[in-house]
Computed example of a mutant assay.
Amino acid sequence: MKRNKQLLSFFNEYQGRLFGYLMKMTLNRPDAEDIFQDTFIKYADKYPMEQSPALLYTIARNIFLDKIRKKVNKTNSYENAPVNKNSPEECLISKNATQRILSLLKKLPEEDRELLSMAGSDGLAYSEIAKVKNMTVANIKVRIYRARLKLKTMMEAEDE
């Protein structure tokens, strides 16, 4: 019973971050939801005693890569991205901003998109990303910095 509460607490703590990561990786809400569910099922089944964010993200990443391999010729959609529904104006602005960012992320190399997704708001710490990617923290910092620069350059070019 105690293990179940600990696992549930762990899931509750990371569900929003993990789903955000998967939305940025898949650019498609239904795929993100499927991978999200598969990730937690696999984690609970194989690692019920663990509470490792790096392991959770590694499982999600591997499931994502498996699905990509199976869907090589299908295109991703970002039309169903989550939107903040306060007022009609805010909704439209938020949706447009989300679509813009997701379309720019789609243009980045997969490695850059993945790193930005992991490090995004409320994302993993650099040390946790380093564990997932099997790299040094310094290398992760440099790669994320460069990926952010690429994204910023793309946004500025689009604004001109």
Rank of each mutant, 00 (worst) to 15 (best):
S127Q: 15
K150V: 02
S52R: 10
K107A: 06
N73S: 15
K42L: 15
Y126H: 15
R143D: 11
V137P: 02
K74P: 02
N80C: 02
K70I: 07
M118L: 06
S52V: 11
R113D: 03
S117I: 01
R17W: 03
E79H: 09
I93Q: 14
I59E: 08
D159S: 10
K24E: 01
L22C: 04
E158R: 12
K95E: 12
S94C: 13
L18K: 03
L151I: 11
N80A: 11
Q6N: 13
L92F: 09
F36P: 01
N73V: 07
S87G: 05
C91N: 11
D31V: 04
A44Q: 08
L116I: 06
I63G: 07
K141G: 04
R148I: 00
L105R: 06
E158F: 12
S52A: 12
K42N: 11
N62V: 02
I101V: 10
D159K: 10
E156C: 05
A32I: 00
T75A: 08
Y43F: 15
C91S: 10
K133E: 14
P48L: 12
F19V: 00
G16T: 06
G20Y: 01
E110F: 12
Y78I: 01
T58D: 12
N84W: 14
F36H: 01
Y57L: 06
Y57G: 04
D122M: 12
L8M: 08
L108E: 08
P82V: 02
S77R: 07
K131P: 00
K5C: 07
A138T: 12
Y145G: 07
Y43C: 11
N139E: 12
I63H: 10
A81N: 05
E114A: 05
N96A: 13
R146C: 01
V132A: 08
L149G: 11
S121V: 09
V72P: 00
L108G: 07
A32G: 04
P88E: 13
V142Q: 11
K85D: 06
F36D: 01
P88N: 12
N80D: 11
K95Q: 14
R148C: 10
K106L: 08
S94K: 05
V72E: 12
T75H: 14
I59A: 04
T26Q: 02
I63Q: 11
K133I: 05
I101Q: 08
I129R: 00
M155Y: 05
L151M: 13
A138E: 11
L105S: 00
A119Q: 03
K106R: 13
F64Q: 01
T136A: 10
A130S: 13
R148W: 03
I101G: 00
T75W: 05
G123R: 02
C91H: 09
S117F: 00
A138F: 04
L124W: 03
D34E: 15
R146D: 03
P109M: 02
K71F: 04
F10D: 05
K5M: 12
E160I: 08
M135E: 15
S103W: 07
K106F: 09
E50H: 09
V142T: 14
A119N: 12
